[in-house]
Design a protein around this nucleic acid. Sequence first.
RNA 1: GGCUGGGUGGCAGAGUGGUUAUGCAGCGGCCUGCAAAGCCGUGUACCUCGGUUCGACUCCGGGCCCAGCCUCCA
Length: 465
Amino acid sequence: MLQIYNSLTRKKEPFEPIDPANVRMYVCGMTVYDYCHIGHARVLVVFDMVNRYLRHLYGENHVTYVRNITDIDDKIIQRAQESHEPFTRLTERFIDAMHEDAEALGVLPPDEEPRATLSMEQIIEMIQTLLDKGYAYTAQNGDVYYDVSRFSSYGKLSGKRLEELRAGERVAVDEAKEDPLDFVLWKAAKPGEPCWESPWGKGRPGWHIECSAMSTHCLGCHFDIHGGGLDLQFPHHENEIAQSEAATGCKFVNYWMHNGFVRVDDEKMSKSLGNFFTIREVLKRYDPEVVRYFILASHYRSPLNYSDRNLDGAKAALTTLYTALRELPAGAEVHEAAEEARRFHEALSDDFNTPEAMAVLFELARDINRLRSAGDVERASGQGALLRHLAALLGLLQRPPQRFLQGKSGESGGLSDQEIERLVAARNQARAEKRWVEADRIRDELKKEGVILEDSGGKTSWRRE
RNA sequence: GGCUGGGUGGCAGAGUGGUUAUGCAGCGGCCUGCAAAGCCGUGUACCUCGGUUCGACUCCGGGCCCAGCCUCCA
């Protein structure tokens, strides 16, 4: 039985889908005004893993995964003005970049990827409903605000009480608001800003309303899982609950999931702090699968500390796994009932405990190596098939081992595969003639070029460092 | 100030009321022409002070420290 830590109740709960034939999950995606950083990579990868596991449990066609794109907001407008281009050109560029990054990280596309600018009808409709029901008001300046005092359970998700929030208020209060905690649903357009027609004049949606409108439109007023980064818990998700439940009159989400932050030097990585690494920057130095491994090697709710040292560790670990899979005959049958499979699923079922699941993968790798040494290639292959089968749920170990171990040909301007093969052949000739000095000279030469040789079982294999 | 979450071996990172996480690095051994890879073995690890208990790193309470949210942020 899958257990999920629910941010709303602050405890692990058994996961019971509303409709097992259609498990529904919505995740807050990117605001596309810049390249994605490693924090975004974490959301993409973590919920991709959740998506994969739900599909494993409920069936490929019985899960609907929606991840939105926020393609209109203040920062987008500001950036577009700075670069003197239409905001849509800016957002298209970064949406393409995001899709490239996601694909590189092995993130499966969501079933639906709604965009704010393409959901105006639903957004305006929801705001109108909130006005009609008395949960919102129009201000003098043409903005429409949500009246927080009308929603009695406001603060439930983030564990805050209205009085505390008011006491802690430390932001210049927009004078148009009746209460500092009220938040904007519709922003009246200033001259020159992108805008849409609405019953309240030209303007654009506030940040929170789009997710309420898009999620309920795609998944219905009540769905199973809503996810996102921990920083969205308040106020974004709190406001989503207030908007959605007030508008639809039904419970919004059963399970709230929040992934922890990525840190650099023990400080949160964020755009506002400027201490972020973009995915594409990191991918210039590390294989995407190494980045994915690094992300899943920590539990999704824990902090994840970004450093070269940790990425190097991830690379070494992944190398160990792929090395175990090297040269195993393919096509062996997977024994789903194996003890390792049971423990692997037990780990993932416990609030997606990927580190513990990964420990099982290493035990399989060791078993493969033992069996191979013992000459039992058949059983080794079986364990290899199981290893790949289980790792697939994490989106790992799906490439031919050689492709991971040997890297891309000509990468970073080193020796080509052909040149390496030629040197290996020359060395093996020398070895056959017991010219050890020459053989070792070639091996050292390759080592300098970042190529490691391994002689075993009468064969020499090589890999790039 | 209010509210969350956390402090595990050299590093990373799970977990458990009493018995090996796992990975990386280190050390010893096997294998190897020598290496590498692999295998076997190996490390006074659980912030602090009390309490509960036959027994706590694991439960409870105080303290210290760290991070996050309370403002845009995945």
